[in-house]
C-alpha cells in the first residue's frame, strides 16, 4: 500500500494555486489535511500527476466571528474548530458537529475546507453547510465568487467548484435566537461515517410556534439532502410527536433511492432516515423550548 509516483508542490499564494490548477487541469489534486485523499493514494485509487499542498498558504487558517456568522479559513484544522472558544460559545452546533467527525487524531490533520470540498455525502461538515445555508468562497481564474451550499454539492464527491477553482473560506451562519438543534447518527462504530444521519434546527416563537425548521439528511444519497417539504410541514405548527412523525415520514419518503452497501440496504437507510429525523426534530424542538 504505497502511493503511486506524483509531483508535489507547496505554493504560498492562492493565485499560484489557481495557476497550477489551470496548468494541470484534472491531473492535479489539492492536498489539504489528506485524511480522505491519502488513504486513496496509498490504495492507488487516486492517481494525480501532481499534488498541490495548500497548507503553506498564509491566512487560510482562521476562525472569525463576523456579523451573524462564523467565517472559517479553508485550511483550518477541524481540531482548531473544536478547541476554539468562539465556536463553543457562539456556535455549539458547529462544535457538536465537529465532535462527530472521526477521532482527534484525524481532526488534528483534517481541515474544514477539505471536508467540504471532498463532499463525501456521509460527512458531517457538508451536511452542516447545507443545513445552515453556508457560503463557500472560492477563487478561480476569474477571481473570487461565493457559492451557496444549495448550489455547491452536486453529486457523490463532486462540487460546483470549477477545475481551476480553490475553496478559501466557509461562512457558517449563527443560529437565530430560540433555536434548538440536534444531530442524530447511526454508526456501527463510534467515529465512523454514519449509515444515516440527520441534522435539524427548530426555531420557535414566544408562543412555541415553529417559525423556522431546517432539516438535512446525510449518508443516504449522493449528497447531503435538504428535506424542504418536511421543513414546510413544521412551520406554523406547535410541533409535537404527531408533527415529528409526519415530517419524518415525508423526509424519508421524499428520498430518491438511498445508497445501498454492505452495511445497510437502501430500504434500511430510508427507514433509518425516518427514525433519526423524528428523533432529531423532537430533540431540536425540546432544545428550542429550553433556549427560549
Amino acid at each position: 500500500m504505497k502511493p503511486p509516483p506524483f509531483e508535489y508542490t507547496a505554493p504560498t499564494s492562492i493565485p499560484e494555486v489557481v495557476a497550477l490548477l489551470q496548468e494541470h487541469d484534472f491531473e492535479a489534486k489539492i492536498l489539504a489535511g489528506g485524511q480522505s485523499l491519502m488513504p486513496l493514494l496509498n490504495m492507488r485509487l487516486a492517481r494525480p500527476s501532481i499534488l498541490i499542498d495548500v497548507a503553506r498558504i498564509p491566512d487560510l487558517d482562521y476562525i472569525r466571528a463576523t456579523d451573524g456568522s462564523i467565517a472559517i479559513g479553508a485550511m483550518t484544522r477541524q481540531r482548531s474548530v473544536e478547541l476554539a472558544d468562539t465556536v463553543r460559545t457562539s456556535h455549539p452546533l458547529l462544535y457538536a458537529t465537529t465532535m462527530h467527525i472521526a477521532h482527534p487524531q484525524n481532526r488534528n490533520q483534517g481541515t474544514l475546507g477539505g471536508s467540504i470540498a471532498h463532499a463525501d455525502p456521509a460527512a458531517e461538515y457538508p451536511a452542516l453547510a447545507l443545513l445552515l445555508d453556508a457560503e463557500m468562497r472560492a477563487v478561480g481564474p476569474d477571481g473570487e465568487r461565493t457559492i451557496t451550499a444549495t448550489d455547491f454539492f452536486i453529486t457523490y464527491l463532486t462540487t460546483s467548484l470549477e477545475a481551476a477553482e480553490v475553496l478559501t473560506e466557509v461562512r457558517l451562519p449563527l443560529l437565530p435566537p430560540r433555536t434548538g438543534w440536534s444531530i442524530q447518527e447511526l454508526t456501527r462504530r463510534h467515529g465512523d461515517y454514519a449509515l444515516a444521519g440527520v441534522m435539524a434546527t427548530i426555531t420557535l416563537d414566544g408562543g412555541g410556534q415553529c417559525t423556522e425548521a431546517r432539516l438535512v439528511l446525510f449518508g443516504v444519497g449522493a449528497t447531503p439532502i435538504r428535506a424542504s417539504n418536511a421543513e414546510q410541514m413544521l412551520i406554523g405548527t406547535k410541533p409535537g410527536q404527531t408533527e415529528f412523525v409526519a415530517a419524518a415520514a415525508k423526509a424519508s419518503g421524499d428520498l430518491d433511492e438511498p445508497l445501498s452497501d454492505v452495511h445497510a440496504s437502501a430500504e434500511y437507510r430510508r427507514d433509518l432516515a425516518r427514525v433519526l429525523t423524528r428523533r432529531a426534530l423532537a430533540e431540536a424542538t425540546a432544545n428550542a423550548a429550553g433556549a427560549a
Partner: peptide, 16 residues
C-alpha cells in the same frame, strides 16, 4: 470481497 479495508471490516474500539 466487499470488506477489504478497516473502514468496512470493523474492529471494536473503546466505545464498543
Amino acid at each position: 470481497l466487499l470488506t477489504s479495508t478497516f473502514m468496512d471490516y470493523l474492529l471494536p474500539s473503546v466505545y464498543e
